[in-house]
Design a protein around this nucleic acid. Sequence first.
DNA 1: TTTGCTGCAAATTGTTTGCACTCAG
DNA 2: CTGAGTGCAAACAATTTGCAGCAAA
Lengths: 161, 161
Amino acid sequence: MKGLLDVSEARERLEAGGLRVTSQRLLVLQILARAEAHLDAEGIYNLAREQGFHVSLATVYRTLSRLKETGLVDQRFFGPEHKREYYEAADKAEHYHFVCLSCGKVVEVNTPRIAQARRELAEEYGLVLAAACTCFEGYCAECAAESGKGKARGHGLAAVS
Amino acid sequence: MKGLLDVSEARERLEAGGLRVTSQRLLVLQILARAEAHLDAEGIYNLAREQGFHVSLATVYRTLSRLKETGLVDQRFFGPEHKREYYEAADKAEHYHFVCLSCGKVVEVNTPRIAQARRELAEEYGLVLAAACTCFEGYCAECAAESGKGKARGHGLAAVS
DNA sequence: TTTGCTGCAAATTGTTTGCACTCAG
DNA sequence: CTGAGTGCAAACAATTTGCAGCAAA
């Protein structure tokens, strides 16, 4: 599923977006394409360093912002506090994210309801929907089983956006 | 719809939450209850000042955080950059928010699909959902009509979380 | 060569925190 | 009286930006 992006393909994609092909951009693209986890700017920066490459954090930020504009990467928010921006390669199918408040695990989930909501809202309110920000929080199956042991953990079910 | 919260009711709610009743907390609660727009900490702070009351911004933040824990207010994120936290009184029915990328207007919208998604995801993946963060972005009917004039504005329909 | 890109460090911005003081209970 | 709450200023953390040098095209 991942790692689909080789150097020449990345190069093409950059050119298609009207961006200069620099080693830093190829690097960021490849790190994202191969990433097993969801990364924020600092995560990308650290991975780059670990792999012996040189980029500045500022460049990572600037690159991510260009790549996002160009549609090469998607930017997401996870967790209750949307303090960090996470990124993923934009070549994946529609999906959403669930974060376990206990173990921090991010689970990619799938539901047709969001797209459905968008269509219906567009229709009902006359809106032109450009994007939807959706993420779910709670307890993953394992954590729920462990701490709950059968009794439902009565959480506020608060809406956080 | 708004302004339901009078002083004595606010007092009761604070006590029920185990919080001390201070003038600052009553003030924040009332500002939120009467708010016509969605406010962030600074907005609340400014409104308080305008009305001749004294609170520090730090206290507004601390108060909001307590009120949120107690379930008296809900915290939301709007717009593409989730930099600011917005708050609203927690006594409203389930609803979601749409922000117009052109005029900035926030439209409260309603859809049963999110709750439906939560139920289905809980079932399908064995998750215990505690909260969902959902917001929509795009162009409101007026702005779309004005700038689009019929032709569909081909936006990326990017997912922003 | 001519812009766009990069690195570095400094600046921004929304939010949090330490500490001494105050007031609700 | 006593601890929770407050104000102020300083601290934080994620992200952005100014500027001089560098390198794609």
